[in-house]
Each structure stands twice: as structure tokens, then as C-alpha cells.
Computed example of a mutant assay.
Amino acid sequence: MMNYRKIALFSCLLAALVVTLGAYTRLSNSGLGCPDWPGCYGFISVPTHATDVLLAESLFPDSQLEPKKAWIEMVHRYFAGCLGLLIAFLCIIAVRNKKQSVLPVRLVVLLAVLIVFQGALGMWTVTLNLQPFVVMGHLLGGFSILALLSLMYFRVTNSQERLEDRVSHYFNLALGVLVILSIQIALGGWVAANYAAPHCTGLPVCNNIELFSLESLFHLPLGKENYEYGVLPFDTRLSIHFIHRLWALVTALAIFAMAWKLYRVAVSKTFKGAVLWVVTLLLIQLTVGSAIVHLQFPLLLTLFHNFMAAMLLVSMVRLCFLIKYRCQEAL
């Protein structure tokens, strides 16, 4: 059982790394660094020898081999493949020991199914030339896998001792806030998939806010052969980004309101600490988001913004877990 916990923890860390590498691949415009899948120009690695490069160019005459972008894409695939094998291993162990109630068999099986679908989305991301709906789905799949792996780790690691607390009736509140946060992450993915970030400069609203239009949001990226660098008009991308900012405000207010309510009624230090973690990560995320716009979207800071979104999601999953599985009404 101890080994299972260690593997579950390692899986969570690896999933966080894969999500971050996926964000870096997207932000560095390396999503089509390899025009095929799962290999790269017909090879299991990036072709480097002169003869291999010539063969690659003959096999894919419409693509230009850029070694740096190709390696970024392949490193992401290698780590994602390792994560898939690790989840398959966890699933086999859980199913073989399903009589041990402490092992969340259904959760691990769901993860195994999700990782297969995530692999398919990774393939379609390349074969459909970064179609935004597929790219956003791939991003959400990565976040979902991280969230479920974190929940699995909490399930097999946390003490079965119940916490005496007054928050046991607030699970629906926390779950609702988690849904709001998930929508915000999806909107962020839609911004990234459509390369809409640089189209809304200025704080707190876009410099060209007069171009914002709800109607333009229904201008969908469809019917193109290649979606790299985006295909939507300027006003649509500005509107997409601004909606992301507006929902960020909704998300922040929802989290602050929830945290205020829960912290006031909480008794245990464990739960109070979990609430403070959520608030702290939110404040960092808001600061980073503002700095990104002010500094004109630097890559590393934007990458950190993606990572903090993942950590905020995990912290909310932990908060929901504590309410659902660890808390009972204090006497």
C-alpha cells in the first residue's frame, strides 16, 4: 500500500510536469514541430543526421523541420507516454487488489479511459493542424487527469480519521466554485487555442474595448486547413480574451466568498489551512495574470500562469475532498 501511495504521488508530479510541458509546447508555437504522430517525421525521435533530415523533408515536403520546436514537441510526448504507462500500471494494481476498499478502483479505471482519449486528442491536435476545439479539449484533458490523479492520491494517503468541523454541509458550495474555476480554465484554453492573448492589451480592460462584441464570439474557427497562429478576426480574439478576464473576476469573487464563509465556520487547522492555500494561490494567479498583460505576454511568465492554474485546481479538489470525505459536524 505504501508503494501505491508513492507511485500515486509520482503520477501527480508527472502529470503536473506534462501539463506544464504541454503549455510550453503551445506557447512556444511548437505544436506542429512534428507533423505526424506519434513519431516525428517518420522517426521515433527528431531526425538529426543529414540523411535522415533529407528523408524527412522528402516525406513531408509541406513542413519545414525546425529541430528546436520538434524536440519540444517530442519531449512532451515522451513524458505524456510515461504518464500513460504509469496510469495503466496503477489501474492494473487497483483492479487486481479491488477487494481492498482503500484503493479507488473506479477512479483509476476512469483515469485509464481518460488517458487513452487524451492520447487520441494529442494525435488529432497534430493531424487536424491545431484545430482550436481539439487543442482546448487536449488542454482540459490534461487538467482533468491531473485533478483525478490528485483526488486518487488524497484518497489513498489521507488519514481515515474524521475531522471535527462545521463545514460538512458546504460540499455543494465548494463543488460549485470548482465548476466556476473549471470554466475559467476552459476559457483560458480557448484563448490559447485561438492565439488571442496579445489581442487584448491594457488593464483593466482592453485598449480597443470598443471592438468587443458578444456576437463575434460565435465566429467559430472552422473549415481551415491549418489553424497555427489563429484564424479568427481581431475583434473575435479580443472578445474571447476579454470574456476570460470577466470570468476571472467572477471566479475570484466566488472563491473569496466561499473562503470567507468556510474559514469563519471551520474548526480544524487542517481545513483552515486548505482554505488559506486556495486563497493564496488565487492571489498569486491574479497578480501573475496582471503582470503578463503589463509586460506584454512574456513566455515564461505565461507558462507560470498555466502552472498556477493547475495548482489552484488541485487545491480546490483537495478542499472538496476534505469536506466530502474527512469532515463531520463538530459537536
Score class of each variant (00 low, 15 high):
Val288Leu: 14
Ile292Cys: 07
Trp247Phe: 04
Leu222Ile: 00
Met258Ser: 10
Ala252Trp: 00
Phe218Asn: 02
Ala254Gln: 05
Leu282Trp: 01
Pro221Trp: 02
Arg264Phe: 14
Trp277Leu: 14
Ala252Leu: 01
Met258Gln: 10
Glu228Tyr: 07
Trp247Glu: 08
Tyr227Asn: 02
Gly230Lys: 14
Leu220Phe: 03
Asn226Thr: 08
Phe234His: 00
Ala248Gly: 15
Thr236Phe: 09
Leu295Pro: 01
Ser268Gly: 06
Leu283Asp: 04
Val267Glu: 05
Phe256Ser: 01
Leu286Trp: 00
Trp247Gly: 09
Trp247Asp: 11
Lys224Tyr: 15
Glu225Met: 08
Ala259Gly: 04
Thr270Met: 08
Ala257Leu: 08
Val231Asn: 12
Leu232Ala: 12
Thr236Ala: 15
Ala259Lys: 08
His294Gln: 11
Leu262Asp: 01
Leu283Trp: 12
Gly230Trp: 07
Val279Glu: 15
Gln296Ser: 07
Leu262Lys: 00
Leu281Asp: 01
Leu220Ala: 11
Phe271Val: 00
Gly289Glu: 02
Trp260Gln: 04
Lys272Gly: 11
Ala259His: 10
Tyr229Ala: 13
Tyr263Glu: 05
Glu228Asn: 05
Phe242Thr: 14
Thr280Gln: 03
Trp277Asp: 03
Val293Thr: 04
His219Thr: 08
Pro221Glu: 01
Leu262Gly: 02
Ser239Lys: 08
Thr287Asn: 06
Lys261Glu: 04
Met258Cys: 11
Ile284Ala: 13
His294Trp: 13
Gly289Ala: 12
Gly230Leu: 11
Thr280Met: 12
Val231Ile: 15
Thr236Glu: 03
Val250Leu: 15
Ala266Asp: 05
Gly230Asn: 08
Leu253Phe: 09
Tyr229Val: 05
Leu220Lys: 11
Thr287Leu: 15
Ile243Lys: 07
Phe256Thr: 08
Leu262Arg: 11
Ala291Leu: 15
Ile243Tyr: 08
Leu295Ser: 07
Ala274Thr: 01
Leu222Cys: 00
Val279Asn: 05
Leu276Arg: 09
Leu249Lys: 09
Arg245Ser: 08
